[in-house]
Design a protein around this nucleic acid. Structure first.
Lengths: 192, 192, 192, 192
DNA sequence: CATGAATGAGAGTTCATTCAT
DNA sequence: GATGAATGAACTCTCATTCAT
């Protein structure tokens, strides 16, 4: 695939992201993509065979970016509390993001693939839990945090985040609600 | 509508519940219902005009039942901790329920109606939060619980439950994971 | 069929007339009639097997009434000009009538039965032509009218009336337009 | 839309004309068109979204042709009587035309759209009336015609034509009947 | 590579008509 | 007589997918 083709592929992906963000997963048709991209029906099929392929490629790209961000951050030598705060801020942004937010599409896609193992969401959740757990343990070691059950606390935090994420897509959530909860979480860890 | 009709309507609803439970919301067609019920196309339309109508009626029934259960329980004279434990047990059942679980369908439906106000999920969430808050306050008054921010704690609990609910529908969750979290929640409140 | 049944039949017919008047022929369904009459589906079928039957019975009744009116009028001993004026007034009423006007339904019905002989419209038209022709001849005999071709004039008048009738149902027609034409017709006959 | 597509569109229109001519408007379904054209369901929808769209496009084409014909004729330097005779001959052809005659479909369509302003029939009728009126006035000026009320006469003629047109679609009309009337009309105008 | 016409499966919906009660 | 639940045929419309150009 030549340079020009790669550009076109990327263009289609970006357009598709907008549409998935607006309409979710199941409501998006190949026709929607074709029309939004203003390309021919056949032209789209040269690059992607289905909306599923499109979404998966988008998620792959997103996952790559996130990995990068996280890795870069973790290697910095900030305190555990600082890194956790950064992590939560990142999560907050995701929860409240209005434009180009694939969350709804991903949920719908996951419903579709419910019984299959290779879940993107599963990896994300497990990775997040592990990071948070490590940070808590590191915070305990450095005397920043007090926590009797780091694993449980980490899972608890991840579920809260997940709960806010889904609520944001269904019944909505305000920034102050998110802030309150993030504060609540940090207060539960930090030694007064 | 006669006695017999009501029975048939109920039969359709029960069949529809099975299907919604298996296929979610958007994937369910009137044809699916018709075939599962083994009735005629037109026959179904006598009772329900769309899958939306079907789902909403199912949710109404479910909501009525839940209201009953909750009310009955609250009036009993148990301690706050006992009632909260009961509430969480009920939630656990919902989270882990495999058969006839409308959760996925409700999420999908909520995505569809995301911009509208009259959300079933919103009501459920707000009502749940209020109940938990009251229970925490009542537990503090009776000396069972210690909590500096009952409202925040209540919301925290609700988000955890919501997080487990959605995870159960996407990446799955085990009973022991749920138990751990419920224990974690109760330990955060109870005075040791 | 008992007294009560006859009343019910008449009630259905009157209700049907309203509906045919509003929606024409093809757009009227048995369901429309059933709902407007607030009777059961099966109940309607006891009296009428189709919308066609309903319309035909309505037209029969109307035709009976018209015959009566015309006969009564003709037998009176007015002048030809007076009777023709009365006839045209009657036609004017029909052309402009807004409520319970079956004209549109009759046209649609005639389209449906275009190739069949037994046309209600045919009878009406021929009868009308004959009447007008006789009146013109009688007017000539009495010195009221001047006309070289009574048959042609009668047909001409009938076509004008027909033209106004159909226009009234399609593009609309005002009372003054009708009056103008009727005046034009009479002036063409009366000796100045 | 390419050359080939335009040909296909025209082919569909011509086929549709046949069907409208045979079955009117309301009785024609997209399925009828599809079958008559021997194309696929979806294929038809590429060109026309409904039978209404089809009919309107047909009428547009017809109207364009008529405009051309009329314009060409009017610019010729014939006498008023000659032109009027030509106009009536054209009308006669329309009235008696058996094949591909959209009259019935247009009437039905007009019933459907009865309360709307932008009527095709209205434009046709008004345009026709104006033309006839001008011709009569021009004939008076040139000494060919005698007429005290050109407007009334023009409307009269148009109603007669309209009456014959609708009768042709309902109860039928013979060529000799039409000829008689056209003669009657011309005799009413020409100075003996 | 790219186009867009074409196909056909499938979902939604409405009614005429029947029939057990 | 009267009811209204039930059936199934018929129609509308939309897309995923293919394929000749």
């Amino acid at each position: 695939m030549g340079e020009k083709s790669l550009q076109k592929k990327q263009y289609i992906l970006e357009t598709a992201r907008k549409i998935f963000s607006e309409k979710g997963y199941k409501n998006v048709t190949m026709k929607d993509i074709v029309e939004a991209c203003d390309i021919s029906r056949g032209g789209l099929y040269l690059y992607f065979g289905s909306t599923k392929e499109l979404l998966l490629e988008l998620l792959q790209q997103e996952s790559d970016e996130t990995d990068d961000t996280l890795t870069r951050r973790i290697t910095e030598e900030d305190s555990a509390a600082d890194i956790l705060t950064l992590f939560l801020k990142e999560q907050k942004k995701e929860i409240l993001q209005k434009k180009n937010n694939l969350a709804m599409a991903v949920y719908e896609y996951s419903f579709e693939e419910r019984d299959k193992k290779n879940s993107i969401l599963r990896k994300q959740f497990d990775a997040g839990t592990k990071i948070v757990e490590k940070l808590i343990e590191s915070g305990i070691a450095s005397g920043e945090f007090y926590c009797e059950n780091p694993r449980g606390a980490a899972e608890n935090i991840m579920y809260v985040l997940e709960g806010m994420k889904i609520n944001s897509q269904t019944i909505g959530i305000t920034e102050s609600m998110v802030d309150e909860q993030l504060l609540y979480i940090m207060q539960g860890l930090i030694i007064e």
